[in-house]
């Protein structure tokens, strides 16, 4: 009885925290007027979106996609082209996400013939092909026209990035806690066993890939909306993939909060280090990432839950030794 009560109160506490965070993030531009802070927040949301979207396929369905930048890039490219040619931004944004999904479905069936590491290097090669080709086809820098520059405002970009991040996290949460999500995780744990239980591995992987591509495409669209000038090839650089993967691993793959914590951590540490040590922050992240893969497969989330249980155990003596939820927990 007592246990049930404490679980309910825990749920309430979590809900309150989420609502508080929502209010705080929604109110941030009203309170903070410094552009640099807003920029930083936009960056965090972008990375959280990108990493969460990677996590749907990479963390939950267990397919280490190393070509995620392709989806991000396609979203950015399509959105930018349509938007700058005068279409409404929202439509352009959706079109970008759809192109990303279309590409995902196009490559999905052949790509999923590959398993494990072969899938990883295959997707890496695919993304590189797009990266080079886009560089060849669109060699010129894309800049906002003067009209758009004059009216450029940071706040709508902020809210767009925020909404996308929330949308991605929310969808990922719902997806993961649905039957489809369970199927995806079954595929991750043991593909053949999942098949024998009637879970179509290919269907679930394609679904995860499409969802992953959709949100990566949206993130790309937000990038295209946010940046004043860049080479169209830039969103296709493999760095976007590696950033997403690193953030997910440092935060904790296969968890909802992992990419959020990872994204915040990534941007904050990057800012702190970049002030003094240009370029060194990437070395630091490389080291952290390797440490996470080698010694901490659960990422920062695992550290947190370990600390929590340690405290809980001390508080309650040896009474509770409940197993930690890893997959479906928040």
């Amino acid at each position: 009885m007592q246990k049930k009560g404490s679980q309910v109160s825990k749920k309430i506490a979590i809900s309150i925290t989420i609502v508080l965070i929502l209010i705080a993030t929604a109110a941030l531009p009203l309170v903070v007027k410094k552009d640099s802070t807003i920029n930083l927040a936009i960056l965090v949301f972008l990375y959280v979106t990108l990493s969460s979207s990677w996590n749907i396929l990479g963390g939950y369905a267990g397919q280490t996609n190393l070509g995620h930048a392709a989806f991000f890039g396609l979203g950015a490219l399509t959105t930018r082209l349509l938007w700058l040619s005068g279409r409404p931004f929202i439509l352009s944004l959706l079109a970008g996400a759809c192109v990303a999904v279309g590409f995902a479905l196009l490559i999905g069936i052949p790509a999923f013939k590959l398993r494990g590491v072969y899938f990883s290097i295959g997707t890496l090669a695919l993304a590189q092909i797009l990266y080079i080709t886009v560089g060849n086809v669109f060699p010129m820098i894309t800049s906002l026209p003067t009209q758009a520059l004059i009216t450029y405002q940071l706040v709508p970009r902020y809210y767009l990035a925020l909404v996308l991040a929330l949308l991605t996290i929310g969808t990922a949460y719902l997806l993961v806690n649905s039957r489809l999500g369970l199927g995806m995780m079954a595929v991750r744990e043991e593909e053949d066993a999942a098949e024998s239980l009637g879970v179509s591995a290919l269907q679930h992987k394609l679904l995860a890939l499409s969802a992953s591509a959709f949100f990566a495409g949206l993130a790309g669209g937000a990038f295209a909306y946010y940046h004043v000038g860049y080479y169209p090839q830039f969103p296709f650089t493999p760095v976007w993939t590696f950033d997403a993967v690193m953030i997910a691993y440092i935060g904790g793959t296969g968890t909802i909060v992992g990419p959020i914590i990872g994204g915040i951590f990534y941007v904050v540490v990057k800012e702190l280090l970049a002030l003094k040590l240009v370029e060194l922050h990437l070395i630091v992240f490389g080291v952290l990432f390797i440490l996470a893969v080698l010694f901490l497969p659960g990422g920062l989330v695992e550290v947190w839950s370990k600390i929590q249980t340690a405290f809980a155990r001390r508080a309650r003596g040896q009474e509770a030794q409940a197993a930690l939820p890893r997959d479906t927990g928040i």
Partner: peptide, 25 residues
């Protein structure tokens, strides 16, 4: 074998990031 290839792949990418930025410096 499977986890080995997967983990070495990830560690390899971390390493390449480190070496690349080391060279840059």
């Amino acid at each position: 074998e499977e986890t080995k290839i997967q983990n070495t792949l990830l560690v390899g990418f971390g390493l390449s990031l480190i070496l690349q930025n080391l060279a840059l410096r």
